[in-house]
């Protein structure tokens, strides 16, 4: 069993990894709370935005912030487009069908990314932020500024969206719409506008997460579209797709446990299982208490 000092640096890296999962997980849950759809294409949208940013920065030679703005706007516009078409179309079908439909979007984007930014010839792309080259020491361990920003962004987004959804009029309208579109419409809420705002806002979130994740994890289509999202989904599931704060906390725990297992030789090969095992335990423990979960029926 490794010693405490051996675990120390992994606590820091684990928090950074947790921040990565938190960004994605919180984004998923916020989308779910605001639109009623679990947008599994969240990672793919952000990834494509990050690739576009890469092209703008490295091929067109534009300054960094132009690329990042482009990425964020791309996320917003693409998600808005998808939501405007498929939101009303599938509203009566229930969350399961709506989620599977977003998987379709993820496949389209994944295929497009691989065509446009191929990995032939040993090309290695990366997104670098100015905060990459700097940090501070905690004890023996170096903490990088970008990780701090990632974690901080996670906290800000968590707190901000939580407050927005609970305390503002628009946020409440979004929650009502996510729960039942028909009834909310009869209450006089301008559903189309609220829906558009929800999709657009969540799309911007996907873009922001995309840039940060491309820097913190990797500018790789498989990693950003599938690996990170599926792991972040574990955190979202632990929070029962409801509480944004619990999603954040669960993501941090997953990241910590994953990295803390690294120096334990008997378990280290299986550490990539961490999100799945934790989610499975949490879900099964919860399901013992009830047969039915949400009140919404699928069509």
């Amino acid at each position: 069993m490794p010693s405490w000092s051996e675990f120390q640096p992994f606590i820091v890296s684990g928090l950074a990894l947790g921040g990565v999962y938190a960004l994605s997980g919180v984004g998923l849950v916020v989308l779910y709370r605001a639109t009623g759809v679990l947008n599994l294409a969240f990672g793919a949208v952000g990834a494509m935005g990050a690739f576009i940013a890469w092209s703008i920065i490295n091929k067109a030679g534009a300054p960094g912030w132009v690329g990042w703005i482009a990425c964020i706007l791309f996320g917003g516009v693409l998600t808005l487009g998808y939501g405007l078409i498929f939101g009303p179309l599938l509203a009566a079908r229930g969350p399961l069908v709506q989620t599977i439909c977003t998987l379709g979007l993820a496949l389209v984007l994944f295929g497009a990314m691989d065509l446009l930014w191929s990995s032939s010839g040993g090309q290695a792309r990366s997104i670098t932020l100015p905060s990459d080259s700097g940090g501070f020491m905690i004890g023996q361990v170096q903490v990088n500024w970008t990780s701090v920003i990632g974690l901080g962004a996670g906290i800000v987004i968590t707190a901000g969206t939580h407050a927005f959804l609970r305390y503002t009029k628009l946020g409440t309208a979004m929650r009502a719409m996510a729960n039942d579109r028909e009834i909310t419409a009869t209450l006089g809420v301008p559903v189309r506008r609220v829906e558009a705002a929800a999709w657009f806002g969540c799309g911007l979130l996907a873009g922001i997460a995309g840039i940060l994740l491309a820097d913190l994890a990797a500018l790789d289509d498989t990693t950003l579209t599938f690996t990170v999202v599926i792991s972040a989904l574990a955190a979202a599931l632990i929070a029962r797709l409801h509480s944004i704060w619990i999603t954040f906390a669960a993501a941090i725990v997953i990241g910590l446990v994953h990295d803390l297992i690294t120096p334990i030789t008997q378990l280290t090969d299986y550490r990539d299982m961490t999100p799945f095992v934790l989610a499975a335990i949490a879900l099964i423990a919860v399901s013992r208490r009830q047969v039915f979960t949400q009140s919404r029926e699928e069509g």
Partner: peptide, 28 residues
């Protein structure tokens, strides 16, 4: 079996989680 009491979306997502776990075990 333990997951069958879940419904709809949650059941689908937990099959994804279980599959992820199996894939990691198999890779090792």
């Amino acid at each position: 079996l333990p997951a069958l009491r879940l419904r709809g979306l949650y059941l689908a997502l937990i099959t994804l989680m279980l599959a992820g776990a199996v894939t990691v075990i198999e890779a090792t």
